[in-house]
Amino acid sequence: MRQLLPAVLWFFVVAWWFLADAWLLQVAGPWRVDLAVALCVFAVFGARASALPWLLVCAGIGRALVYGGGPCVHLLLLGVPIAALFPLRRLAMPAWILHASVACILALALPAGSALAQRIAEGAPPLLGRPALGELLWTMCTAPLAAALLGRLPPLWFFREAAA
């Protein structure tokens, strides 16, 4: 039950998460808080490894719902960078540098992944704009902050490694 309730909560919240992301995109354009990057930063540094599959399955379905495309493609788009960057969590460096670097990589990787998926996969999401330098710096600042803030709130709080 302790595991089930957060899982169910995340399942029902994730659509709102990406709806908020899309709303921010519409309101603020590229100068928004990128909630997809924030989720990935949380997954890389803050989430329990055992919780990642469920976090990402729900995120894949929710993002596909909001942005279009197949859930498996979204799962790969989000999951591959997370899996690749996951070992960085034990790197002995100041956390803010790590978090900002990972946000930077993710802000570039997500549009690049979408573009690649457009070329090779059926059910690919629509193309996202590649961020300019200023927008990249903005995401490097805001996405880790959003990850830290939202990671302290339910439902992500239940998936934190420290809370395990």
């Binding site: 490894a49 055992s50 197949g70 498996c72 790969l76 996951f86 034990r90």
Partner: peptide, 26 residues
């Protein structure tokens, strides 16, 4: 995050699911 305790646990569950997702994309 505990960086002192040896190797981190790799997200094996996530990796397995990504392989499954890649198959499902096809």
């Amino acid at each position: 995050m505990n960086r002192a305790d040896g190797l981190p646990r790799l997200p094996l569950g996530l990796c397995g699911m990504l392989v499954l997702a890649a198959a499902c994309v096809l």
